[in-house]
Design a binder for these strands. Structure first.
Lengths: 332, 332
DNA sequence: GTGAAAGCGCTAACAC
DNA sequence: GTGTTAGCGCTTTCAC
């Protein structure tokens, strides 16, 4: 059996109320009493049971972060930002939703069952209607990835604008045969859709005809990048520049080019998305769009905690500035 | 105000006990009543408050996993294993300790304040004495990384044996000038110590003199791998094989070799540790020791949950089999 | 400055 | 099969 506030009170010869006051500094307690209570707490090894406290206070001081999976450096940076901003006010708990709607919903249940006070989602399969219903009753924020049609608080970069700018820069550098590597319809994320829209806009605005055979859709991982290179670069009229919606795809694309004797960046320029640590380790180093992950995390946490404190929920999208990190794979 | 079990009871015209029974299936309830209660629950959008439940039941069905940081694919795989094994019985919460003793201790406080039922640590800065004191009162397991002198339940590979075997294989392949790249004293982890011990043992057992100038100590990341290559490979009598205690170091080492015109694996063979996804993306692909991360996670969760159920804590170390994944950077 | 007591939402023992 | 009630550990009025 663990030691409770009652045990401390009895042992210290005071009431539980006094122990609670010492614990929380919620009201004046004489110095002698406080000292005595502290001594007893230490001697008994007492640690307050947060279930009792939270039940009574109607708050847990926990914020849940739901990620698709744990091992992605983008998420890692965002979480660090959330953590640093929340610092001592809240504990940050991370859970993996594995891009599964049911799992994500089960995790969001931690809001309704009062395990956490707020939730941040970094990419999700939940639909706008379900999420908005929850967001009306609980503190929820989306970070880095939106949900189409949702009015939930969202912190992200303007993906369309970023893709638009990269393609514009390719064109300014004299390229006209520009390809785009993305995911297919089964795993489409709003960010991908936006990036594709930016790509298309730039081509159109620059009077370059969109070529279906230059748009490769499959999955977002390394292997698909390899396949993309094999298929795109073996065409009779291959692209001279490629924008990939993830750095993993870009890395795979470069690898795929190596396989078939195509040189990067000489024969084809490659740009990724996200600026994960791999970009600097790869040969050639990968040019990419960087999301200000850490700042996105901080901003999200700040907005959420402000809502928590004021009781006023906030909605809508806040865009943060992206960057274009020029490395070896594309000089744009 | 959120709706409670009382509201449901009143609305359904039954007692709170009956609602609780319907919720938990803990006792027989007539079909009519159950149906009625379910209807009211749905209509009111009731969700049980776990704080009340957990307080009463003295359990939370949450397991905490403390990682040094979030974005490491080894941790990701271990956590997936833990998750799958715990499946519906427990929710897995992940928190980052950032290799900071104080942060880790604060997180372990979730055991004492009854926020979680058990904790898994994947590498920690907490000392044996402090941890063992906690492990005597709570369910704690270490996974992949031990604490020297601790008797806490630990699931890991035999790091010494693995390093020993790699070096043996280098020697069998005719190499005698074998280097070792590891971390320095400020960030030493037991796994690193064990791997160094295996390296030294193999040399000694094979009657090869240990050369201090072949042991490079700094940090465990990519940049240090580059530095290691620059310093080790520019010696007058450079090594012809290198074992690095992380894949990141191995990748950096290869990059560093490229910088100065040393060919891998022709001039020097390189082996890493952990088998992270980077190994297959790198050129050349990296030979490495693989930890059975997913199985380690499952085993850890199983052992922990068994303890939780039986109330019998378990202690000691369980070794799982490692593998040596031969790729391009070393043909051993 | 301190104590008594109510009550947060829930489960389970007991009674019927 | 169902209701009444005690109590999990804590905070917070309200008295004094």
């Amino acid at each position: 059996m663990s030691v409770t506030i009652k045990d401390v009170a009895r042992e210290a010869g005071v009431s539980v109320a006094t122990v609670s006051r010492v614990l929380n500094g919620s009201a004046a307690v004489s110095e002698d009493t406080a000292e005595n209570v502290h001594e007893v707490i230490a001697r008994l090894g007492y640690s307050p049971n947060f279930l009792g406290r939270n039940l009574r206070k109607r708050e847990t001081r926990n914020i849940l972060v739901i990620v698709p999976y744990i091992g992605h450096s983008l998420y890692s940076d965002i979480i660090k930002g959330i953590q640093d901003e929340a610092s001592n006010e809240y504990d940050i708990l991370v859970a993996a939703g594995y891009s599964t709607r049911d799992t994500e919903l089960r995790l969001l249940g931690m809001l309704t069952n009062h395990t956490v006070d707020a939730a941040v989602m970094l990419g999700t399969r939940v639909d706008a209607q379900t999420l908005d219903a929850l967001a009306d009753r609980y503190n929820i924020a989306l970070c880095s990835e939106s949900i189409e049609g949702s009015h939930a608080l969202t912190i992200m970069i303007d993906n369309k604008k970023a893709a638009y700018e990269v393609v514009n820069r390719f064109i300014a550098a004299g390229k006209t045969r520009i390809a785009f590597v993305t995911t297919d319809e089964t795993i489409i994320a709003p960010s991908s859709t936006d990036r594709l829209a930016g790509y298309l806009s730039s081509l159109t605005d620059n009077h370059i005809k969109v070529r279906e055979e230059y748009i490769f859709k499959r999955n977002y991982d390394y292997t698909c990048g390899i396949q993309a290179a094999h298929e795109l670069m073996r065409q009779s009229d291959p692209p001279e520049a490629v924008l990939c919606i993830s750095d993993l795809l870009a890395a795979g694309f470069i690898k795929g080019c190596n396989d078939i004797g195509v040189k990067v960046p000489k024969d084809v320029q490659v740009c990724g998305f996200d600026n994960i640590s791999l970009c600097e380790m790869f040969t050639p180093m990968i040019t990419t769009v960087s999301q200000p992950a850490y700042r996105m995390g901080r901003t999200t946490a700040r907005r959420l905690i402000d809502s928590l404190k004021t009781g006023m929920r906030s909605y809508g999208t806040e865009y943060l500035e992206y960057g274009i990190i020029v490395r070896e794979s594309a000089s744009i």
